[in-house]
Simulated scan of single mutants.
Amino acid sequence: MSIDTLGLREQKKRETRQTISDHATQLFLQRGFDRTTIADIAAAARVAKMTVTNYFPRKEDLALDHHAEFVAGLAQTVAHRPAGESALGAVRRAYLMALERRDPVIGFTGREFARMVADSPTLVARLRDLHDQREEALARQLAAEVPGDPVMARAVAAQLAAADRLLFRDLQARMMAPEDTGDTAGATGEHGHGAAADHGRATTDDLAAAQADLARRVFGLLEPAIGGYAGN
């Protein structure tokens, strides 16, 4: 088999996967996640049910299709930080950059998508699990970088992950605020109850600016305790 043939086959697989994902998202937004079946998605995408499950073994993966990137995100941020930057500094910098990109992986989703996820107990539970996996991956990375004190590595990971969860929930709540016009393409979401719902006709720039201010405050609170950890 030629390289060109392999390339075409891989391209076809990517296109099929994207088609399935796109149709699934449309159905989830129209009907709700829990009321949409794999058969519905297969019919809309004009593929067999087995094709859907081959690309997406879990139904939740069709809604949270950046789950692998999400789980690895904090650990990868720490692993690839510049020399001399602390773990806290790396996570803070990466979060603010993601806000600038309006990255859906950190919760910058559209209002309808955020609401769809919030209305599904299945997806809310799956997000909790993904956040736990994200923290565990970070703890492993920190333990590998600072050997000899796995308890401290896990404690630092827990603090960073707690900040990460708080910011994720807050941003999703901002997305669902009344009159919110911040509808960007979404890939992951969770309903949060702690954020203000008084943004009126806030634009995506307004939301990002408010979230950046919150992030600086949240990470700033961690500075005295873990600001220098893994900074060598």
Score class of each variant (00 low, 15 high):
A139V: 06
A144T: 08
R92V: 10
T19E: 05
D119E: 08
P57T: 09
A63M: 06
A161P: 13
T204I: 11
A68F: 04
S2I: 05
A162I: 03
V52R: 01
G194E: 15
R216A: 09
L142M: 05
P147I: 03
A210C: 03
V124H: 10
A230M: 07
A144C: 01
G227C: 03
G200T: 02
L222P: 11
G189I: 08
E190L: 12
L88N: 04
G227I: 05
F168E: 00
Q141S: 06
A230C: 08
R35F: 03
A144F: 01
R115S: 15
S120Q: 05
S86D: 01
G73M: 09
L96F: 03
T181F: 05
D149N: 10
H80C: 02
E100A: 07
A161G: 15
R128D: 12
V151C: 01
R154G: 12
L29S: 10
A185E: 05
D103L: 00
G200C: 01
L127I: 14
A185Y: 06
G189E: 08
H191K: 12
T77G: 07
T53M: 04
E60W: 06
A83R: 10
L127A: 14
Q30T: 09
A208Y: 00
Q18G: 12
L6C: 06
H23E: 11
D206S: 01
A43M: 05
K59I: 03
F70T: 08
L142A: 03
L167W: 04
V218G: 09
A230I: 13
G200S: 08
L130P: 03
P104W: 07
L8V: 15
L27N: 13
T188L: 04
K12L: 14
G194C: 14
R58K: 06
G148R: 02
R169I: 03
K49L: 07
G228P: 06
A196H: 11
M152V: 09
E145Y: 00
L123F: 01
A230Y: 07
A153E: 09
Q76W: 11
T37A: 00
